[in-house]
Design a protein around this nucleic acid. Structure first.
Length: 421
DNA sequence: TAGGCCATCTGGTCCT
DNA sequence: AGGACCAGATGGCCTA
């Protein structure tokens, strides 16, 4: 590594005033932030970085290889404009390196790896640790009488070897439970992804976007029930996309074969007058539905590859103004992932699966599908007409529905439903 | 290089 | 004591 000896100065780190250590400026281009490799002592190096935590860690991994056998510590500061002369004791400080016997993070990471690979192996390793502990004295609670005020209340029991082992085993089991719990949560979220009006296997909605879209979807369906009339497509999609990030909006637009430009609020003033009127009929609501200003990830601009294209549609000419590209354009790259539940604003359409998919093998049925998905299955179905129109598929079936092999047919059905009045 | 998203670990809190 | 739940911390992966 090329480092330039810069200067010698004193520094106060964690109350320890270090004098006359050498700073090596590491040539890292971080928009003026940069990093410094400080030689605190003969065998102690310190990586300081005026960047974000993520960048600091990344850079640390690179520059920690500079001098093997040394104790490496690192620190970072989010304030990239911090003057160089500023005391680094204010920086977020943490210790790293296997040489640091107080390295809690290193131990945590090691435990993480063990448990992630195999809990049994981790437990075996803990047993090995237990063997190692036999050579040591019992671990007692850390006491710094000079540094910290004495605690009130009952003293903690001494951490005997047996207690330590039980603690470790308990921790491993708790990690397993927590992992499983999060997996269950993710499974439920995946189910939710499949019942909101936008689903793609290759471009999954993020967790937060899935929740936002689901909330919007529920609200939009509720509004339909409340007003007892079908909204227009534009206002419905507007309601769906409120507060969503640009990529998610694009995805929803793609699922509906719309151009996001035609319904995004910021572009609404550019819409033709009849579209604005249509939007107002749905968005002006006594509940004063508001999505708080949510930060949208800087994913970039609209990606036309997400836009659905259908081969033909009976309402193509009527829909033409809403679409970014001609509906008859079948040469454009098609949307990789279709909708999961067929989206219907009024829930009047029906479709039948043909015996050509994996889905058919497991779910042979013909049903009238109220686009509400969950809502339709649970209670909104009766509001969409006779019992014959209700979804009579068990919830488990609904939740595991996967319509990837029918996306074009479903899309046609959806559009048919949306504009069938 | 920055930042978003995610999985995982961890310790605290609450409840049984 | 132990399980469920939660939030913070961390590193990996990915994209702009």
């Amino acid at each position: 590594m090329k480092a330039r000896k810069r200067e010698a100065r004193s520094l106060n780190i964690r109350g320890n005033h270090l004098r006359q250590f050498t700073i090596w400026r590491v040539p890292v281009k971080t928009g003026g932030a940069g990093g410094q490799l400080s030689v605190l002592s003969q065998n102690t190096l310190r990586w300081s970085c005026r960047t974000s935590r993520r960048t600091c860690n990344s850079l640390y991994k690179t520059y920690s290889k500079v001098k093997k056998g040394c104790i490496m510590t690192k620190s970072y500061s989010e304030e990239s404009m911090m003057p160089e002369s500023q005391d680094a004791s204010n920086w977020n400080d943490e210790s790293l390196g296997s040489h640091d016997e107080h390295d809690k993070n290193g131990e945590r990471r090691a435990m993480k790896r063990n448990c992630a690979d195999d809990d049994e192996d981790a437990l075996n390793r803990l047993e090995d640790d237990e063997d190692d502990d036999d050579d040591e004295e019992d671990v007692e609670e850390e006491e710094d009488d000079d540094q910290k005020p004495k605690r009130r209340g009952p003293k903690k029991k001494k951490m005997t070897k047996a207690r330590l082992q039980r603690f470790k085993v308990r921790r491993v089991k708790a990690n397993t439970r927590e992992r499983n719990r999060m997996h269950g949560l993710n499974d439920a979220l995946e189910c939710l992804r499949k019942v909101v009006p936008c689903y793609s296997k290759t471009q999954k909605l993020s967790k937060i976007e899935t929740l936002r879209l689901a909330k919007n979807y529920i609200w939009a369906l509720s509004e339909i029930l409340r007003s007892d009339k079908s909204p227009d497509l534009m206002s419905f999609v507007q309601a769906l996309c409120k507060g969503l990030s640009q990529p998610t909006t694009n995805l929803v637009a793609g699922c509906l074969q719309l151009s996001p430009r035609t319904f995004l609020p910021e572009q609404s003033q550019e819409l033709p007058s009849h579209m604005q009127a249509a939007s107002a009929s749905f968005t002006a609501h006594p509940y004063s539905y508001q999505t708080p200003g949510l930060p949208s990830p800087p994913y970039g601009t609209m990606d036309s590859s997400h836009i659905f294209h259908v081969k033909s549609h009976p309402y193509a000419s009527a829909l033409e103004p809403f679409f970014e590209t001609p509906l008859t354009d079948c040469t454009s790259p098609s949307f990789d992932g279709p909708l999961s539940p067929p989206l219907s604003v009024n829930g009047n359409f029906s479709f039948k699966h043909e015996a050509s998919s994996d889905f058919e093998k497991n779910y042979a049925f013909s049903m009238h599908y109220p686009g509400a998905g969950l809502a339709g299955a649970q209670g909104h179905g009766s509001l969409y007409g006779s019992s014959a129109q209700r979804c009579e598929v068990p919830m488990e079936t609904m939740m595991s529905y996967d319509g990837h092999s029918h996306h074009e047919r479903l899309m046609n059905a959806q559009l048919n439903a949306i504009f069938h009045e």
